[in-house]
């Protein structure tokens, strides 16, 4: 059993045993506790990119989209109204999208003033601009919803790879990780080549990659588990992401 950020996830026969996630903390407390607020803020900080992409696809300029995204987070953290979650099958991904659509509709209809993040933007402006320049995706063929779903899937992977890399860095195996991670998606570089480069036996490389892949799979499920309310949704989310990226 591994413990990560208050999340308890273990692997037994391919299933993820599921106790507490940041999202379930939020749901259980209905946002009425400091820990729930902190958990929601962490989640928003991690998954702002899909939301920002959705707003941009609505036709807003980068500046307007930044204001709207930050304003949405401020509203979300202040309002703590999570009733809609049940209607969205208890998934953070669906809940945030529904909430954002509602927020944007109201913003347009009433021409309301966007409430800024009280001088403390959730996402730094520099980061937004960097990502804006890097928004190189098939945007002209995707609807706003698809952009949101696609970016969400990619963000999950980014979070996982980042965490995995940090773990290997801490253990002093950063260079080995850089080589082994290539094998997650293809057969190159070969195990023999890595073995030669790091002075390892080929079987040791095979074992190391096996451990890395197991850890990757576990972290992926953990990351997804952070955003769903019930354990059975983890596999569904995985399948959903595959279908999103396949189309």
């Amino acid at each position: 059993m591994a413990l990560w950020n208050g999340v308890s996830v273990s692997a037994q026969n391919g299933a993820v045993a599921f106790t507490t996630t940041q999202w379930s903390v939020v749901l259980d407390a209905q946002g009425e506790s400091p820990s729930a607020e902190e958990a929601l803020e962490k989640l928003c900080r991690a998954y702002w990119w899909p939301l920002y992409g959705f707003v941009r696809r609505q036709g807003y300029s980068p500046e307007e989209a930044q204001d709207l995204t930050q304003g949405f987070f401020a509203m979300l953290l202040e309002r703590r109204d999570l009733d809609a979650v049940r209607r969205e099958k208890g998934r953070l991904r669906s809940y945030l999208l529904a909430s954002l659509k509602n927020f944007l509709a109201k913003a347009r209809r009433r021409a309301m003033t966007i409430k800024r993040g009280e001088g403390r933007p959730l996402v730094p402006l520099e980061e937004l601009l960097v990502r804006e320049r890097a928004d190189l995706e098939p945007a002209d063929t995707l609807s706003a919803d698809r952009i949101y779903e696609r970016r969400w899937a990619l963000t999950v992977l980014e979070q996982v790879l980042e965490r995995l890399g940090e773990e290997y860095q801490v253990a002093g195996n950063g260079a080995l990780f850089e080589q082994l991670k290539q094998m997650l998606t293809n057969d190159r570089p070969s195990q023999a080549k890595i073995a030669q480069e790091f002075g390892m036996k080929e079987n040791a490389v095979k074992q190391a990659f096996h451990r890395l892949r197991q850890r990757y799979r576990l972290l992926l499920r953990e990351e997804i588990a952070q955003t769903v309310a019930v354990p059975s949704d983890v596999e569904d989310e995985l399948r959903h992401f595959i279908s999103v990226l396949q189309t």
Partner: peptide
């Protein structure tokens, strides 16, 4: 694979790899 792929990896393959078994029953061994 688009320019926004996570660390340049194919996202689809990463998710498919993630679908593998979690226990010791691993085909690579």
């Amino acid at each position: 694979i688009f320019a926004d792929a996570p660390q340049g990896f194919c996202g689809l393959c990463l998710f498919k790899t993630g679908l593998g078994p979690l226990g010791e029953d691993d085909e690579s061994l």
